[in-house]
Computed example of a mutant assay.
Amino acid sequence: MQRILVIEDDGDISELVAMNLHRRGYEVLQAYDGMTGTRMAYAELPDLIILDIMMPGKDGFEVYKALQQDERASRIPVLFLSARAQLEDRLVGLELGADDYVAKPFSPKELMLRVQNVLKRYAPKPGEVEVVRGPFRLDKNALKLHLDGEVIDLTASEFKLLAYLVERAGSVQDRYEIQKNVWGYGDDVQTRTLDTHIKRLRQKLGPYADHLETVRGVGYCFRFDD
């Protein structure tokens, strides 16, 4: 049974989300403030975190940044759920590396579909547990990149993006298709998110950054000559 941690300070909303998750067979953990939610994420390592932004003490953005400092917690997919529906707030959440952003008020049915989509994207597929291209070795079970034998710390979204490109090495990938397959949809908001993630990946890949090629007017391509 997959476990989902709901970090939400509004008790009514938390119970509504938990009830719908229970109905679909998920195990639900609940925290009502950012500090408690962060501790539970470290201790429980759930399969997904549904994270409110506007909370007293430690808001959702701060919680997310704290999770990225922990090797294991940084690999947990995060879906922001917030009353802050402005485009700027959504951009901040997605550019931090979150996997989705749902604005309040929300449709429980839509939220459950988005939860399913995020979990599906991170579920390893049979026969595709490990991807190897030269010095790049991606462990899809652990969401880890081994580069020349060294483990490179990637967020869950960064790993998903790199794996998508590496699996299609040598083939130019359209921006819309990348966004749709990595984040679940390809609207304009995701455009900046994609570019931000590529920039961060290149920084982390160091001397191997050139393998991520920008194809102007089209998208990106992972180049590797055997």
Rank of each mutant, 00 (worst) to 15 (best):
Y176I: 08
A142K: 15
D52Q: 04
R84N: 15
P77G: 01
L21T: 02
L87T: 14
R24D: 15
E158T: 05
R216Y: 13
G34N: 12
E88Q: 14
G219P: 03
D33F: 01
F61N: 03
N20S: 06
Q2L: 07
I76V: 15
G25K: 03
A73E: 01
K104L: 11
V166T: 02
Y220T: 04
Q190G: 05
Q86N: 14
R39P: 01
D226K: 06
V215H: 08
L16M: 12
T38M: 09
L205Y: 12
N141K: 15
A163S: 14
K199Q: 15
D174C: 04
L91N: 12
L5Q: 05
D52T: 08
R121P: 03
I50W: 02
T36W: 00
L81G: 11
I152T: 15
A31V: 07
V182E: 04
W183R: 06
M40E: 14
S171R: 15
R121S: 12
C221T: 06
R202S: 09
R75P: 03
N117T: 15
E128L: 12
I53D: 02
L201N: 04
E177Q: 14
Y185C: 10
L194T: 07
F224E: 03
V215C: 07
V115W: 11
E128C: 04
A142C: 05
D9L: 08
D195E: 13
T191N: 11
E158I: 04
L87G: 01
F80D: 02
Y32G: 08
Q68W: 00
F222W: 02
L87H: 13
F222Q: 01
D210G: 13
N181L: 05
W183D: 04
A163M: 00
R114Y: 04
Q2N: 12
D59M: 04
V166S: 00
